[in-house]
């Protein structure tokens, strides 16, 4: 239970860490565009190079990226196998009689799997180098132009912040309630699926009750500190767009441009 890490943040002091979250979100969007523009497997070299440079600059160990990939390993394997089975081709590498593995299929499998790996690795670079608070802050600012269309940018960001803040608390709480019910002889491990789902009720109900109580208390605490929505609220940490941000965005655009050139030429 404790090992669930959603968008785990690794504190640091690198250039990447210090970038404005807005630029980092923008850079990630450009990076995603890059991975989708790639049409042939060896063109992945460009987003890959970009990712490696970012990784080195951020000083984050490769282990964290691999950890982020761990939960989707089943999905990756499945993607690989499905592409291997369903891609048609002429260039037969291996003939098993009922099933032929073609060169095209292997290439396609590697291509799709690599794309997913690069996407997830790039997205986790964002969450690894940006604290959840900075991230929601950046998102709020990026979305705030949409306020003219009555889009609740501030409310959305606040909700995300609160949700992120309470994930560890709820994990702790569910651990505690689980222990208490186990001490009363509750059994969460045996029986069929239906029984097991039913056995979760003694955990889920106290968890909901305490979530509502916490939400209530939090609302009171926020109001008593004069929170009244985003209107006219000033910030402790002002977001600033600085020279490194400009450079980072320009470099990213350079990568996108070179990818487009390569795509057009070859």
């Amino acid at each position: 239970m404790r090992d669930i890490t959603l968008g785990q943040f690794v504190a640091g002091n690198s250039v990447i860490h210090k970038l404005d979250p807005r630029s980092k979100i923008g850079m990630m969007i450009l990076y995603i565009v890059m991975t989708f523009l790639v049409k042939r497997i060896y063109f992945f070299a460009i987003p890959l190079a970009y990712l490696i440079i970012e990784l080195i600059l951020s000083g984050i160990s490769l282990r964290y990226i691999l950890n982020a990939l761990k939960p989707i390993r089943i999905l990756l394997i499945l993607m690989f196998v499905l592409n291997l089975v369903f891609t048609k081709g002429e260039n037969v590498w291996l003939d098993l009689g009922f099933w032929q593995i073609t060169g095209e299929a292997v290439l396609q499998s590697c291509f799709m799997t690599l794309r997913i790996i690069l996407l997830v690795a790039g997205a986790s670079m964002l969450t690894l180098t940006t604290s959840p608070l900075a991230l929601t802050d950046g998102l709020e600012r990026l979305l705030s132009p949409l306020k003219v269309f009555r889009f609740p940018a501030h409310e959305l960001a606040m909700m995300m912040t609160i949700a992120l803040r309470f994930i560890p608390t709820l994990m702790d709480e569910s651990d505690k309630i689980r222990s208490a019910q186990m001490a009363r002889g509750a059994d969460f491990e045996s029986g069929n699926v239906f029984r097991r789902v039913k056995s979760m009720i003694p955990i889920l109900i106290p968890l909901f009750v305490s979530s509502f109580r916490k939400a209530d208390e939090l609302a009171i605490a926020m109001e008593s500190r004069c929170y009244h929505g985003g209107e006219g609220r000033t910030r402790l940490h002002q977001l600033r767009f600085r020279l490194p941000d400009l450079i980072a965005i320009l470099v990213t655009l350079l990568f996108v441009a070179s990818l487009i050139v390569v795509l057009v030429l070859f």
């Binding site: 002889g185 509750a186 955990i203």
Partner: peptide
């Protein structure tokens, strides 16, 4: 446990108190 009232879950006090003996 600490703050044991946070583990209450059943619809009635009776059902909640009966949870342990039922499991036994």
């Amino acid at each position: 446990f600490q703050y044991p009232e946070y583990q209450l879950f059943a619809e009635t006090v009776y059902d909640d108190v009966a949870f342990g003996p039922k499991n036994m």
